[in-house]
Design a binder for these strands. Structure first.
Lengths: 212, 212, 212, 212
DNA sequence: CATGAATGAGGGTTCATTCAT
DNA sequence: AATGAATGAACCCTCATTCAT
């Protein structure tokens, strides 16, 4: 927060380019964005980009490396901010939605790039995904120990079930021009995860002969 | 609409290009694919593409228009193939997974393009999404009437909750090189939708004062 | 000499570009020449270059591959056009000077590129050089058998001695704007090779204690 | 001309840059070398180069101006170190080979740049060449007066005949990674210059009706 | 209908040179 | 004097689209 000032300047320009890039990527997608556009948005010359980034691809990679770390730390903190598993889950999802709502450009880039098949930031994305899945695993295991989460679950599926739903909710919000409050979806979403859409008319037996 | 072979040839070539395009798109994504590659894959000259498609973008649009119709009809049939709501849901999701497993190229293109922000086939994708959401709405409403689906549901959310989860399960399968059987995920997925991950230790009352 | 006409057109354009390139290279050197300049000189679009050549470097490589073959065949013919070794040498050198005088652009490119240290057409140049040295070896050996060429010669050196002198004579002509007749240098050059600059006042003994 | 350390520093840096430049040029050729590389090799900042040189081209020009003077003085001394013409010639050529063997980087740059058609150091190179040719002229004239060099020589040709052969011998050595002793080529080379490759079977008369 | 050679605008990247510090 | 971050013109190459055959 107070390295000389050369470091600050440097950081300034580095981050300025990064933010500009994300803004441009969010608008047009990575491939359709040009280095010139990014330079213009950042208010620097084209060549300047290459003082801070190896090439165009590197901008995306650096972006993910940077966001991965930052966002994950906040997710971790959210989870650690509660004791009981379901509260942890609720905190995680609320934080997730909050973060993506707060930084819409990041959210847009994230949504697009994580669904590409030739992913440039492959490593970063895989790492981030894994961290997220691990967080959920942790919560689900604790919940099972606490007795509030079913034990007859197909583990791998549960993770994707949750991630996918959250993702889609974010995606829908992004495509709706972000007019409503995304974070407020956290509670109902968790409710769906936990209770499902089915009624409890069925006796406990039913849950026992569960499909899987 | 059916001069003996002229029309058939035309259709042949049209569809040959379409299928070739999807194969190429699946490999490299739409933007990274070149018209030449598609022409080569289809066994026609570059210029021939432009006899059947307005431009490169149009190939993607036509592809979605074509698949939308085709796939939706199958989804509709799957739903109609059952009487009770939960069976309809199960059928729909199983058919969804089956179709995407059967045509991996289509699945790849679909997954990527539906998550782009500057979507070329915007209209087609929106239409397809809407049809899908309508199918789910229909099922949920029927389920509520039947009493097997909760009435205290945030409607819009339920749809995305289901779509997102299915999407992510497909996505994961695609990125795992499709080594396992995707369709077999239908049952456990529906189970999660209906029952949630929570235990039923809690009495029926609990479900009534549910989180939302 | 009479493939359909598509082949002729193709050849036409291929050779047009090649000739244009050599003209431009001769003017400014390879590195300083731009693809656009070549295209303009050839009367084609920039992109057209890439239909016939893999990249800019390839133009130079192809040029050498083409000229190597052509020129060498003529050298070979010149040598074969005489019986006695010294006549062969005279013929070779005269033909060499004639060819380079006839195609000044080729000569310029050749002189420059064969003296680069990072030679693009390395393989071609090495091959051409070797062929030339082999021709000379052949002649010298025959001359020794005939008794008109000294037997106490440092073989490797003789070749470079001859090649170097011819090269420099060409080089000087090129830099003098080619105002005088290069081919007429053949006779005096061969005379120098054979007789040296020394006088024969010295007895035969002298030649026996020769420096090497 | 000699403020204690200011001038020395300046000279130091000037020469450091010059030597660094030659090292880099020898590796990659002039055009392919970047100012940054030279600065790095010299251990100075990019901008510093421009305190000592007008621009990149000027580095090469200065290099030749510097070497021209230095090398020529040594050539002059070598020639002056003998009395008889053939000894002068032998000394000159030995010194030439020695100098180029001693400073391989210089030799590489020299070989490449003197063969460029758009020569940056045109003036310097021409001057150097002229000095060299003048040395040879001087020697040949003296030899003719002494009676040991033929009088029926095409003067201009003799010079290029000698320069070219020496050049090519150096060139070959450079491209052979300098594994053998270049200087030892002096004697055999001079022998070839003087005696030629022909046998002396022919009587003195023969040399009189010589080819030219 | 079909072809595929030709086009040329546009993009990523390099690097000589400048200038504020 | 010295620095090195910043500049932006210029280059090589790709590829969607056209059009003469």
């Amino acid at each position: 927060m107070s390295s000389p000032n050369n470091s600050k300047d440097k950081n300034n320009k580095y981050h300025r380019i990064l933010e500009a890039a994300v803004k441009v990527f969010a608008r047009q997608g990575f491939r359709q964005s040009t280095v010139s556009q990014i330079a213009k948005e950042a208010g620097v010359a084209d060549g300047t980009i290459y003082l801070y980034f190896k090439n165009k691809d590197d901008i995306l990679v650096q972006f993910f490396a940077y966001k991965t770390k930052q966002v994950f730390e906040r997710f971790r903190a959210a989870v650690d901010g509660a004791d009981r598993s379901l509260d942890k889950l609720r905190n995680l999802i609320r934080r997730h939605l909050e973060e993506f709502q707060r930084d819409r450009n990041m959210a847009l880039v994230y949504q697009v790039e994580t669904h590409q098949n030739s992913r440039l930031a492959e490593a970063q994305i895989k790492e981030m995904s894994k961290m997220y899945r691990d967080l959920i695993s942790e919560i689900v295991e604790q919940g099972q120990a606490e007795g509030c989460i079913r034990k007859d679950l197909y583990f791998g599926l549960v993770k994707h079930f949750i991630i996918g739903a959250v993702d889609e909710v974010i995606n829908t919000w992004l495509h709706s021009d972000g007019k409503y409050d995304l974070a407020s979806m956290a509670e109902p979403l968790v409710d769906l995860f936990v209770q499902g859409i089915g009624t409890r008319v069925e006796t406990g037996k039913n849950s026992a002969d569960g499909s899987l």
